[in-house]
C-alpha cells in the first residue's frame, strides 16, 4: 500500500526534489500532501517570491488559479495556488504580520491574479505593493475605511448596512455596567 502510494506521487515527489535541490533552505518546508497536491509551509517574503518565480519559469506552473487569504491570529496568510499542465497544484504560502501586512503583487508574473489580490486588499486589509490601477473589488464604493470583513475580529452583526458604519460595542461597556451594579 505504501509502495503504491509512493509510486502514484512520483511526479509530485520529483518536483519537490527539484525545488529542494535549487533552494536548500526550503528542505522540509515543501511537501507532497497527496496526489496532485504540493504544499509549502508559510514562507518569508523573499523565499516565497524566489520559489514562485522558479515555479513559473522552470517548473512549468504556468497558471495561477487564485489566492486564498487567511486570518491566522497575529498574521495574515496568503496561499497562492499555481497549476501546471498535468493539473498538479502547488500551494505556496506567504505570511505577513497584521501590524505591517505588506506583500508584493505577483501580477507581473501571473496577470490572472489581479482580481484575487484586490480581494486581499478589500477583505483582509493586505497592503499589496505593485497592483495595477483599477476599480476596487469586491466591496462597494463608500465602504468604511479600515473595515476588513474577512478578518476574524470583524463581526457582521455590528455593521449597519443603511449608514454603512461599523459599530462594535465598546470594550469598556461591560466594565461600566458592572461598576454601576
Amino acid at each position: 500500500m505504501q509502495d503504491e502510494q509512493t509510486s502514484t506521487v512520483q511526479a509530485e515527489q520529483a518536483i519537490v526534489e527539484k525545488i529542494c535541490e535549487k533552494f536548500g533552505f526550503l528542505t522540509g518546508k515543501v511537501f507532497v500532501q497527496r496526489k496532485k497536491r504540493i504544499l509549502t509551509q508559510p514562507l518569508d517574503k523573499e523565499e516565497f517570491e524566489q520559489l514562485l518565480h522558479y515555479a513559473h519559469d522552470e517548473l512549468g506552473f504556468y497558471r495561477a488559479s487564485h489566492v486564498v487569504g487567511t486570518d491566522d491570529g497575529e498574521d495574515l496568510g496568503f496561499i497562492y495556488l499555481l497549476v501546471n499542465e498535468e493539473g498538479v497544484i502547488l500551494a505556496l504560502k506567504e505570511r505577513a504580520p497584521k501590524s505591517n501586512p505588506q506583500i508584493n503583487s505577483m501580477t507581473g508574473v501571473f496577470p490572472s491574479l489581479e482580481l484575487h489580490e484586490r480581494e486581499l486588499v478589500d477583505l483582509f486589509g493586505a497592503d499589496v505593493r505593485g497592483l495595477p490601477e483599477g476599480p476596487s473589488f469586491p466591496l462597494p464604493d463608500g465602504w468604511p475605511k479600515g473595515n476588513y470583513p474577512m478578518r476574524k475580529d470583524w463581526k457582521p452583526e455590528y455593521f449597519d448596512r443603511k449608514t454603512m458604519t461599523y459599530n462594535p460595542p465598546r470594550e469598556d461597556a461591560d466594565k461600566e455596567a458592572k461598576s454601576d451594579e
Binding site: L115, P135, S136, F137, P138, L139, P149, M150
Partner: peptide, 13 residues
C-alpha cells in the same frame, strides 16, 4: 476595464 463584485454576498464569511 472589468468592474465586477456587485453580487458579492459574503458567503465565505
Amino acid at each position: 476595464v472589468i468592474g465586477v463584485g456587485y453580487n458579492h454576498r459574503g458567503l465565505e464569511k
